[in-house]
Design a protein around this nucleic acid. Structure first.
Lengths: 215, 215
DNA sequence: CCCCGTTCCTGACGGAGCATCAGATACCTC
DNA sequence: GAGGTATCTGATGCTCCGTCAGGAACGGGG
């Protein structure tokens, strides 16, 4: 185990509030905080997420929370960043690992299903990421951009190859956004009588027509 | 003291915290609170929106705020409801008042442009409405459903008339969602080099292909 | 014009959560 | 098992919350 030369941005200087570099135990506690935050977000509105509650959920004290995060918002930022790190590549592969030539329809379905699945699984974090991005917070916005960059670029390449009418970048961006939105508001659409399967079909159809140019 | 039988939902029992029915001056103050809330939301994150600040912005005291709203969330709810009341019909007309037969492309553009304009104008309220809906708050969810119902139904009818492949309801719902999302994240797409015009073109294209079945 | 009831506003307060620090505790190394 | 470092927490001052009781503004009748 060589000296942690943290040149990479990934393991950026992760410091406790007093400037120390956290060790194994500290990092575990930090992670416990993030887990607790995530768990609470399943049931509590972001606006009502309090430091006291996170600390209690994590089985520790509020003061400990402040050792690792200056505020709740920063904990959310860390969660979002982790999500980006661990999923950026997978989202990209979800699109590139497809036989678009041989089975365009099935491929579109897989992409639609995979993206919806991803958003649904991480909904609590992603909706906060979305809100903060909309509100103009640049740190969240960058994480969001990076998280979606892989998928967007893959779709863009696909669209560019096909010489579809219209701007490939715009098409890819809009499609990715649509997927995010649909996943987030799936409940609402289902309440209008739209089943999950029909939804995937519809979204896949839009992907097909917008990105592949197939009618 | 007769039991106020407020049958209508419109003039629902709008009460001050002590049970009075507010008069002209009271309603003006209430509105001033809502305006102040809206103004603050342009610059302050929803999570950091405090009663004290709203009161200060409205040139009054925190106690006054509590005369008209039990909490900040309820003020947001009122703003969203007002938005729904005043725009429901217009959003619907934005779609029905079009010559879809004679000029499908222009019509799709108008709809795309109009929706984006609407969302951009009311972005601060709408993004909170979106978040609260996602978080499962039924009151916000209902307002959102109603607000979008007009537009969604109009698009659905259009899709149904055309006998497009796929489910008209799902198509309409997804398209409306896409419009909302694109408006909210316009900045992000523009940062990727996508101009507003190209964006409108792209969205209009998706509307055309998804709802009208025109390639 | 003043009176008086109603409507509306606010100063003041106890309570809850925030954010900080100094000191206590757990862990590791030798 | 002693000493040093990493980690945690009780205690604290402070901001904001949410609720009164009482004061100010309005408006209709004399």
């Amino acid at each position: 185990m060589s000296e942690q030369t943290t040149d990479e941005v990934d393991s950026q200087d992760l410091r406790a509030s007093d400037g120390r570099v956290p060790g194994r135990r500290g990092l575990a506690t930090r992670q416990k905080m993030l887990d607790a935050t995530g768990a609470l977000l399943d049931t509590v509105a972001y606006r009502d997420l309090k430091v006291v509650d996170i600390a209690r959920e994590a089985g520790t004290s509020p003061a400990t929370f402040y050792q690792y995060f200056p505020d709740v918002e920063s904990a959310m930022l860390a969660m979002a960043a982790d999500l980006g790190d661990s999923w950026y590549a997978d989202l990209s592969k979800l699109i590139t690992n497809r036989d678009w030539e041989g089975d365009p329809d099935g491929s579109a379905h897989r992409v639609a299903d995979g993206m919806l699945e991803f958003w649904t699984r991480h909904k609590p974090v992603l909706r906060v990421l979305d809100l903060a991005s909309m509100e103009g917070d640049l740190r969240f916005r960058e994480i969001r951009t990076n998280l979606l960059a892989g998928a967007t670029e893959a779709l863009m390449d696909l669209a560019a190859e096909r010489n579809i009418p219209g701007d490939p970048m715009a098409s890819a961006g809009v499609v990715v956004g649509m997927l995010a939105h649909v996943a987030n508001h799936q409940h609402g659409l289902e309440r209008w009588g739209v089943s999950h399967e029909v939804l995937v079909d519809t979204v896949a159809g839009i992907i097909r027509r917008t990105i592949l140019g197939v009618t």
